[in-house]
Design a protein around this nucleic acid. Structure first.
Lengths: 190, 190, 190, 190
DNA sequence: CATGAATGAGTTTTCATTCAT
DNA sequence: TATGAATGAAAACTCATTCAT
């Protein structure tokens, strides 16, 4: 692909992201994506075989990116407390830098238009979290509850706070996010 | 209205709830609601003036019901720890009894098709939580963080756990929900 | 039929007349007629077998009435000038007393929903006019042009003036209509 | 626009004109217009944003055209008798060349679906006529009646004769129309 | 008789997708 | 490759008519 083509594909993806977040998958028309991207409607079909392919591309792109941001260079040798902080902090940084993308991933979680590949990626981070929790439980620094429960709890708490920030009910700042992190650690620690 | 008419209105609301949860507002067609409700498409318009009126009716009905379940006979004189448990327990009972309804309220939170009345109801429970938290903070039994933050944290954690149960990754039992409750109290207590 | 039934039928006809004039046949719904008549939608079908039957009933009723008003006690023995004045005057009186009815007949002239019987009545007055003109032409008091032409000319002129009055561009008064009558006689006289 | 596109827009306008004249605005469905124009139903919405936009486009197009035909190169310096003849003759020529268009303008006069712009154009020709009549009245060659009355009279007479010709009750010929013109002049002359 | 809930065909309109240019 | 006109299926909604009450 040439640089020009990449630009167009990016413009389409960016426009689609905006609109999918604003109006949802079914509420977003392909022509509206084209218009916001500054291309003709037909052009979208040079880059994506269908509207579904477009959501799936977006979904995979950002799921992969967030997973990479969390996992890359993860301090597997540090204590659980520190690991917890790192995961939360990296997600917070990502969320503050890419709020729309997180909102998109949340909103389209489990949409019937996601293909099997996207579905597989869906739980990647949750699975990573479960591994971390189990390790910490082995060291008895985290509560002896089902690891899944703790992870879903943490994930939910994080998203609850993030969503409130997105909707303006809380400041979207790292300090606020790290306040929440300290609360959350108390929830899971042994 | 006769009993028969109430039945039909109920059938339509129930069918719409199912489908709105499965496919979202824009992904659900009025004829598909009619089919599932066992009525003709036109009949829906005898009971609801538009598809939007239908979502809003559902939204208000269940938002009001969950608020009533939490607030009715609330033990305002008990200690904060007990109040927290009561709120969580009542929401858990509601969620276990009406999982689809909770999923519906979550999914349609902030939809552009919600009317001003629905929007007003939206934050009723959050506001109630904020009041409770502030009272508890006055007694120094809860962390001195912004009350909004704590409430959104709790709400998020609850929903994270509930959603995992809904999707089969956790058991949808009261015991599990109350395990989460204990975690959550540790997150917010002073 | 009882008096009560006649009342209902009249109320339906009156409501239908209003709405057919305001919005036309296809633009008027049966429920809207029912509402304005103060009856239930189904009730209309006790009196008229269909929406088409309803327009046709109205059409025949008023076409007959206007013809009767013009023809009853017509001075067949008076001079043509006087006969012309009488026809115009009677139509003017009718039009001033029943402007909506005239507008209705005009608007629905030649509608595809008129039945054969209504169509037959359509030209009754025109035919009467043609007879009168031919008689007057035999006496050479009216121009020796095709009788049809003169009659349609007169009819058109009458309606043009009436419509302007209906729309408020001219006063709906007998004096004004009789001014027009004098003009019109000059148009047709020999 | 390419020639091809213009063709399609023209085909749609022509089909719509036919059907609006035959069945009225509300009696004409968009698919029926599409079928007669030989295009798909959706295509109509590339050229006209709605069914209302379509009638309004037609209305403005032909109202403008008839006004232009009457007014362009109008002999403002000729005597009133000659001016009257010119107006009538030009309208007759237009009516004979475009009978459906005149019928359309008549039928849709004052339809509730006409937009403000169309409404403004509506009385353009009537206003022109009023000006001409007032000038002629100043010279005392035309009756000293309200100018509006004379103009509506003439307009009505013209349309009455035209409509009879359209419906086959009179020959649609210029000779016939000019016979009517002579009658009409006698109606208005002083 | 009178009602008005129910029906389902039909209306206007949108939109994912294709394809000639 | 890029376009955007064209398509036609499907959406939301309306309405003439029927029929159980």
């Amino acid at each position: 692909m040439t640089a020009h083509e990449l630009d167009r594909a990016e413009a389409i993806l960016a426009a689609a992201l905006d609109l999918f977040v604003e109006r949802g998958f079914h509420g977003t028309s392909v022509p509206s994506v084209a218009e916001r991207a500054g291309v003709a409607a037909g052009t979208i079909y040079h880059y994506f075989s269908s509207k579904e392919a477009l959501v799936n591309a977006l979904y995979k792109q950002w799921k992969a990116q967030i997973a990479s941001q969390v996992v890359t260079g993860f301090p597997f040798d540090k204590p659980a407390r520190e690991q917890f902080r790192v995961i939360w902090e990296r997600m917070a940084e990502f969320a503050i830098a890419h709020p729309k993308e997180i909102a998109f991933l949340e909103l389209h979680h489990h949409g019937s238009y996601l293909d099997p590949e996207s579905r597989q990626i869906e739980n990647q981070l949750i699975d990573f979290g479960v591994e971390m929790v189990k390790r910490a439980q082995a060291e008895q620094v985290v509560k002896a509850l089902p690891a899944e429960l703790l992870v879903e709890f943490v994930d939910g708490a994080f998203l609850g706070v993030f969503r409130a920030a997105l909707e303006g009910r809380l400041p979207m700042t790292k300090a606020m996010m790290m306040d929440a992190e300290r609360c959350c650690w108390e929830a899971v620690r042994a």
